[in-house]
Amino acid sequence: MRIEDVDDLAGLDARTIIDTLDRMPVNERPDTFTAQIRPDALIITDDSGEQSFPMPDDEVYVAIAPYEQQTHDCYYHAPVSCVGEQSDTDVDVTITDSATGEAYTDGTVRTFDNGFIGVWLPRGVTADVIIEKDGRTAEGTLSTGNNDDATCITTLQLT
């Protein structure tokens, strides 16, 4: 099955497809194709081959899965198969530009069914991330400056 055959995704751009897939309940996610989010493109692979959907010129999507006990290794987010520990829960998220202090995200966010939050960040920045939940905090730094930067952050342990 090709992505064009999936009614909800046919004819959409990378941003819309990513937002749709990451928000989809885990038990409703398609198993007929894989998706991988890279800084420069969304790559969809199915039985017929690979399709590339270009990312916006000025933004990069980064998926973040805070965890307490268990995580998984990941580099490029796979929205139909990546699953994090903190499903459908509220977390306080602050993401700021490391150089200027400009806030990109600051507030309570509900994780998706897959345990991730997804953020669209400007290209070419280094950002500090702080996630808080129930008195526990996770901190880290991410980058959107290169086409080989990670789009799946699974290393932020709530302690």
Rank of each mutant, 00 (worst) to 15 (best):
residue 46 D to W: 07
residue 4 E to C: 06
residue 55 M to D: 03
residue 104 Y to G: 12
residue 90 D to L: 11
residue 101 G to M: 01
residue 16 T to I: 09
residue 22 D to H: 14
residue 20 T to N: 05
residue 38 R to D: 11
residue 65 A to R: 08
residue 157 Q to R: 09
residue 72 H to D: 10
residue 3 I to W: 04
residue 57 D to T: 00
residue 104 Y to S: 13
residue 75 Y to K: 08
residue 128 D to P: 00
residue 2 R to T: 10
residue 121 L to Y: 07
residue 158 L to F: 04
residue 45 T to W: 14
residue 59 E to F: 06
residue 14 A to K: 14
residue 45 T to R: 13
residue 113 D to F: 01
residue 32 T to Y: 13
residue 62 V to Q: 00
residue 123 R to K: 06
residue 109 V to L: 07
residue 146 N to D: 14
residue 49 G to K: 08
residue 150 A to I: 01
residue 19 D to G: 06
residue 14 A to T: 13
residue 44 I to K: 10
residue 32 T to P: 09
residue 154 T to H: 00
residue 138 A to E: 09
residue 17 I to M: 08
residue 78 A to V: 13
residue 59 E to V: 02
residue 93 V to P: 04
residue 131 I to W: 03
residue 18 I to Q: 05
residue 27 N to R: 10
residue 87 S to T: 11
residue 41 A to F: 12
residue 51 Q to P: 00
residue 134 D to M: 03
residue 153 I to E: 10
residue 68 E to D: 12
residue 129 V to Y: 00
residue 96 T to P: 11
residue 17 I to E: 07
residue 52 S to V: 14
residue 52 S to I: 13
residue 24 M to K: 11
residue 141 T to Q: 03
residue 43 I to G: 05
residue 152 C to S: 03
residue 68 E to T: 14
residue 158 L to G: 01
residue 138 A to G: 10
residue 104 Y to A: 12
residue 49 G to P: 09
residue 84 G to S: 03
residue 34 T to H: 10
residue 17 I to Y: 09
residue 17 I to A: 06
residue 12 L to A: 04
residue 22 D to I: 15
residue 93 V to D: 00
residue 99 A to Y: 10
residue 115 G to R: 03
residue 119 V to I: 09
residue 125 V to L: 09
residue 98 S to E: 15
residue 64 I to K: 04
residue 81 S to A: 15
residue 87 S to C: 08
residue 105 T to G: 07
residue 37 I to M: 14
residue 44 I to G: 04
residue 156 L to T: 04
residue 115 G to V: 02
residue 82 C to H: 15
residue 13 D to H: 11
residue 151 T to V: 01
residue 95 I to H: 05
residue 42 L to H: 13
residue 53 F to L: 15
residue 101 G to T: 02
residue 146 N to T: 13
